[in-house]
Design a protein around this nucleic acid. Structure first.
Lengths: 355, 355
DNA sequence: GATAGTCTCGGTAACGTTAACGAGATGTCG
DNA sequence: CGACATCTCGTTAACGTTACCGAGACTATC
C-alpha cells in the first residue's frame, strides 16, 4: 500500500464550532484584529494551532475586494538590448494574473541614459497614490531620494535587477552580482590556460552611472587574482551604443591586446559576437557574457559565444509583483528572499531554457 | 504617464445580463454541457468572445467539489542516493497545495532494484480507483504493460524523470536525456585538452534495467566523437551499491586507465568524490556528474567535482501533479510540455540554486 | 385529450473567507 | 441615575462559479 494523505482540511467554520465562538471571531483572531478579548483569543489560537488550520487562499482571494495599486518603474528597452523587454514580459504576466483580484498595476518606463527621465517618472509615481512600487535602481542617489519620499507616504518599495543595500522597504529580488562575477571568472578558468590575457569589456552609454557593473567586475577580478595563474587582466570601457563606434574601439583594443578571452559585463555580448563574425581574420577569443536575449543566443548557438550567464529578468519582474500580492493579500510572507539562481547557458542546453 | 491596465474583469453575471439569460445557462455554455439550444448557445458564445471573458479560477476552484484521486508510482529512495527524496519533496509540495481542493493523492514506492516490487505496487494502484497516475518508468516492459491496463480503465498516466515515447496518455515531464549527455560532453571539452582519456562510469545495482542511461551515454559519445579531438573514451559499469565494493573496482580501473576525466552517468558522483578524497596519492581527474544532492554538493563545494548537471527532480514531481490538477480542474491545458531546463552547477553558483 | 418523455432554461444553495453592521455588556462621567 | 463611549462578539451579505432541482414548453404515444 501507499501512504495515505489526510486531506481533511479544517475550515474557519470548524474552528468556530470547536471554540464555541462565531466565525467572525475566528477571523478576527486569524487576522489579529482587535475586538477580541485576550481570553477568547488565546482559546481560539490554541484550537487553530492544535488542528493546524491552513486558510483557503482561494476563498480569501475571492472574498477580499481590494483596490490595491502598484507602480513599476524600470528602464525602457533600448534599441541596443532587449533586456528590459524580458523584465517587462514577467511584469505583464503578473499583471495578467493579479488583475483578477482587482489589483491595478501601472508601468512607468524611463530612459536609462537620461537621469532626468527617471526623476520625471518618479514624480509621476508620487503624484498618484500607489500602495507599492517596483524599482529597477539604475541611478543610485536619485533612487535613494525617491525611496525616502515613498517611505514618508507609506508606499512600499521593492528592487529588482540590482540592489542598493538597505534602501528599499521590502528588499531585493535578483542575483547576487558579486557571485555573478565570480562565476564568470570560474568559467574563464576552465576556458583558458594559465598566463592568458583576459579582457573585461564594459559597453554602454552613460557607464558612469551603472554602479552594479563594478560589483560584477570586483567578483570577477577577485576570483582570478586569488587563482594566481598569472592572468593578465585588462578592464576597458566603450561608452557607446552605436555598433560602428564600438567596432572601431574594439578593433583598436583587440589589435593591441590580442586577448584570449573577453568577458562582456552586460548583455551587449552580441555586439562583440557580431564584431568577430565580421573580422574573421582576427583570432577569435573565448567569449562570456550575460542574458538570454535572442541576439545573444544566436551567437551562443553558432559557437561564437561560449557561455551566457543568465539571471532570469522576467522571473524577477514576475516575482516582484507576486511578492507584493502576497504581502498585501495573503500576508504570508515574512522570510526575506534568497538571491535568484544564476544560470549557465551553453550551446547544448540553451534550447531548453525558458523563463 | 505610464501604461494603464484595464482591470475590468467581466464575470459570468455580466455575460448573463448582456445575453438576457441566466447565469446557469452561461455556465452551461462555458463548460459546453447540454441543455442549451443552439441559438442561445451561439448568442452567449458571441458575447463571451466579444468581452474576452476569462473565468475566475479561484471561484471555480472554490466552488467545485470534486473527489479526484491521483496515484504516484516512483522508486523509493535508496541508501545510496537521495535522488528520489527530491522528487518526493516536490510531490509532497503538490499534495499540500492541491489537497485544498479535496484531491486525494497516494504515494506508492517501489524498489528500483527489484522489478517484482514494481509489479506489486502497480497492481495495488489498479486495485483502487484513481483518476490518474504519475509514473517514474524504470522498468520498461512492465511499465508499458501497466499503462495499457490503465488505459483500459480510463486512468490517465503521466511520466516523470525519463520517458517511454508515446506510452503515457498525458506525456512526459523531464529533461531531454540525450541532450543531457551532450551537455556533459560539451563541458568535458572545456575541461580537458585533446587526446585525453575519458571514463564513463555507470554505478548502480541492476544496471541492465536502466534504459535511460544509454540515452545519456549516446549523447555523450556522439558529441565527443563528432568533436574529433582524439579522445579515448571508455565505458565501465560497476553494478554495485556498496562503497567498499565500488572502491575496489574503481581502484583497479583508475589504476590501469589513468583517466583525465570521469563522467558519472547518474547521481552516484559523490561515491567517486569520496574515493579520490581517500586515495589522495592518485591523480584526481576532472569529474562531472548529476543531481543536486547534499552529498554531491559537498564535493562540488570542495572543488572535487567540477560540474553537476541538474534536472530539478522536485520540480518535475510538482509539475506532474500540477499538470493533472490543471487537466482535471481547470481544463486549460492543451499544449504539450517542453523538456525541462538542464541546469549547470559549479562551485560558484550552487549556493543560489534551489528547486 | 390525457400522459409521459424530452428539451430548455431559471432559481438558488453551496464552497471558505472577509467585513460591514448592530446588539449586548460593561465602564465613565456628569 | 442617565447619557454616552468602549469593548466584545454574532449575524449576514457579499466574492464568482458550480450543480442540483424543478418549472414550463413542446413532442410523441395511446
Amino acid at each position: 500500500m501507499g501512504e495515505k494523505t489526510d486531506n481533511k482540511k479544517v475550515g474557519i467554520k470548524e474552528i468556530a464550532k470547536l471554540a464555541n465562538v462565531s466565525i467572525a471571531t475566528v477571523d478576527r483572531v486569524l487576522n489579529n484584529r482587535k475586538d477580541v478579548s485576550d481570553k477568547t483569543r488565546a482559546k481560539v489560537q490554541a484550537i487553530i494551532k492544535e488542528h493546524n488550520y491552513q486558510p483557503n487562499l482561494y476563498a480569501r482571494a475571492l472574498s477580499v475586494k481590494n483596490n490595491l495599486s502598484f507602480a513599476v518603474l524600470i528602464p525602457k528597452t533600448s534599441s541596443q538590448t532587449g533586456y528590459w523587454d524580458l523584465c517587462l514580459k514577467g511584469i505583464k504576466q503578473g499583471i495578467e494574473e493579479f488583475s483578477t483580484f482587482g489589483i491595478t498595476i501601472d508601468i512607468f518606463l524611463y530612459d536609462q541614459e537620461d537621469v532626468r527621465t527617471f526623476i520625471k517618472m518618479s514624480e509621476d509615481v508620487l503624484s498618484r497614490n500607489f500602495n507599492a512600487v517596483v524599482i529597477a535602481p539604475i541611478f543610485i542617489s536619485e533612487t535613494i531620494r525617491f525611496v525616502e519620499e515613498c517611505k514618508k507616504r507609506r508606499i512600499e518599495s521593492i528592487f529588482v535587477n540590482s540592489d542598493i543595500k538597505g534602501c528599499s522597504s521590502l528588499g531585493y529580488i535578483g542575483p547576487d552580482l558579486y557571485s555573478t562575477g565570480r562565476l564568470a571568472a570560474n568559467l574563464t578558468s576552465y576556458l583558458v590556460p594559465a598566463n592568458s590575457k583576459v579582457l573585461i569589456l564594459n559597453i554602454a552609454r552613460g557607464l558612469q552611472n551603472y554602479a552594479y557593473l563594478n560589483t560584477k567586475i570586483e567578483g570577477y577580478t577577485d576570483y582570478l587574482n586569488k587563482l594566481d595563474r598569472g592572468f593578465e587582466i585588462l578592464n576597458i570601457d566603450i561608452p557607446s551604443n552605436n555598433y560602428d563606434e564600438i567596432a572601431i574601439d574594439l578593433l583598436r583594443h583587440v589589435d593591441t591586446i590580442n586577448p584570449d578571452l573577453i568577458f562582456v559585463t552586460n548583455s551587449r555580448v552580441s555586439v562583440v559576437g557580431r564584431f568577430f563574425d565580421e573580422y574573421r581574420n582576427i583570432k577569435k577569443p573565448h567569449i562570456i557574457g550575460f542574458d538570454f536575449l535572442t541576439e545573444n543566443v544566436e551567437f551562443l548557438g553558432s559557437g561564437m559565444v561560449d557561455f551566457l550567464i543568465c539571471q532570469r529578468p522576467d522571473k524577477q519582474g514576475y516575482l516582484a509583483l507576486n511578492y507584493l500580492y502576497r504581502h498585501f493579500l495573503l500576508k504570508d510572507v515574512k522570510e526575506n528572499f534568497k538571491p535568484m539562481p544564476i544560470d549557465i547557458l551553453t550551446i547544448e542546453n540553451y534550447l531548453f531554457y525558458e523563463n
